[in-house]
Simulated assay, not measured.
Amino acid sequence: MKKKFLQMQFFTFLTILLFGTACNGPVKEDLPKEKEHPKLIKTIGNPRYGSINCSMQDKAGNLWFGTTENGLYKYDGKSFRQFLVADGLNSNSINDILEDKDGKIWIGTKDGVCLYDGKTFAKIQITLPKNLPPNKNKFYQTHSVSDIMQDKAGKLWFVTIDGVYVYDGKTFTLFLINEAANGFLTSNDKVERILEDNAGNIWFGGRTNEGVYRYDGKSITNLKLKDLFQDGPKPKAHNWGWPQLQDEDGNIWFSNWGGAYRYDGKSFTIFTLSGGVMRIIEDKKGNLWLGGDGGLRRYDGKSFSRFTTKDGLATPWLWSILEDKTGNIWIGTRETGLYLYDGKTFITYSEFKH
């Protein structure tokens, strides 16, 4: 009898224990904590200063981000690695990144060119012509490289504050068009962006030029935006353009402080937007993404959708846009901000630490 009573007590205690556990749920301390995704950590300078200026995905799938003042970051999907002057760069301010056909990575910086072979950085010296006039702008007394492109023939083009140079794998040659001592597109012309279209034409543009320039391999044609608008001449304001891309329909897109411009081979169509446009890309679905000081816009060929700080971006100033191989859109902003847009929300991938 006593044994039976003890058994009843034990089962009653066990029932209470199980019921209490089910009600209260598992002890949270025993569960593994959710891992936070890695972030690009800014450590140098004022948190409000600087930008992510450029971005690229290499053939191996790594993402690269060039910044103002905080060097170059490589993201392999698991962690970010930061490269600085201490690692071999000639400057911590990065303007452009390009992976060439051989898998080498070229970095355009505030102070010139660096080449990364996967292990080390080499500083590349562009020898300037002796008769090249000095840049008189006191704010540009460096050898800054703003854009790098590899053409269909394999030659590399470097847009610098000291002119445009073509590299054939051995030597750098100043891009000359005529017999004048300094040729065309010297430092005083301030070309800043370069683009090769599907036909092999090379386009140039910058803020102190009138219109845009097209080089067909033999001669230069100056296209003045104000003379080639679909609906007639436009005001002179911002009569220059950065060449951005050629879309899947063959149109060439340019941008400036006034908006975006589409060239169909005959005339320009203007898309006036609130604020300037610094970057345009085309995604795999054919949508255009435009970023500038007015936030992020997506153009589906008919209308624009706008994303601003209300959608999760900390600043409307965008300098870099990249679509990765999985279709995610990466946004680089002022204040060295990095965001991933997965089609629904913006996820912050950057942080400032002292």
Rank of each mutant, 00 (worst) to 15 (best):
K28F: 04
W64C: 00
Y215F: 15
L89F: 05
F175G: 04
Y261E: 01
F11G: 00
K2L: 07
N53D: 07
L6Q: 13
N188E: 12
D111Q: 08
K3V: 10
F271S: 08
E248F: 04
N182H: 14
I252C: 00
F80D: 09
D151N: 13
N137T: 15
I94L: 03
K33A: 15
E36K: 10
R297T: 00
N188G: 09
Y299N: 06
D189S: 04
K101P: 04
L6Y: 09
F229K: 01
V27M: 04
N92L: 06
T160A: 07
F83T: 05
T127E: 15
D324I: 05
T336C: 11
S219I: 06
L174V: 08
I148H: 00
W157M: 11
K353T: 14
S79W: 02
G291L: 09
E29A: 10
D283W: 03
D168N: 15
S93V: 01
Y215M: 05
D87W: 01
R297P: 03
A199Y: 06
T120V: 08
P129C: 12
L290G: 04
L115V: 07
T21S: 07
H37Q: 09
K152N: 14
N178D: 15
G232R: 09
D151E: 12
Y341R: 05
G45A: 14
G200Q: 13
D87L: 06
L322H: 02
K2P: 03
G108P: 03
F271R: 10
K101E: 11
Q7H: 07
A60Y: 07
F172S: 02
Q82K: 12
K3Q: 05
Y339E: 02
T43D: 15
K35Y: 02
F346G: 05
S320A: 15
D58C: 11
G292K: 05
A153K: 13
S350M: 09
S320N: 02
I347E: 08
G118D: 10
P129N: 11
D216P: 06
G205D: 06
I281R: 06
N222A: 08
P243W: 03
W330D: 00
N53P: 02
S320Y: 00
I107K: 05
G241Q: 01
I16S: 14
D249T: 12
G103F: 10
K78H: 15
T348R: 10
F65D: 01
N182L: 01
N62S: 14
Y116K: 05
G265R: 11
K59R: 12
K344F: 11
L128D: 00
T333M: 13
T12C: 12
L223I: 14
G71M: 01
L156D: 05
L245F: 06
A314P: 07
P133M: 14
G206D: 09
N46C: 10
I270K: 06
K119F: 03
K152D: 15
I126H: 02
E99V: 01
D96R: 04
P129D: 05
L338V: 14
G232I: 01
K226M: 08
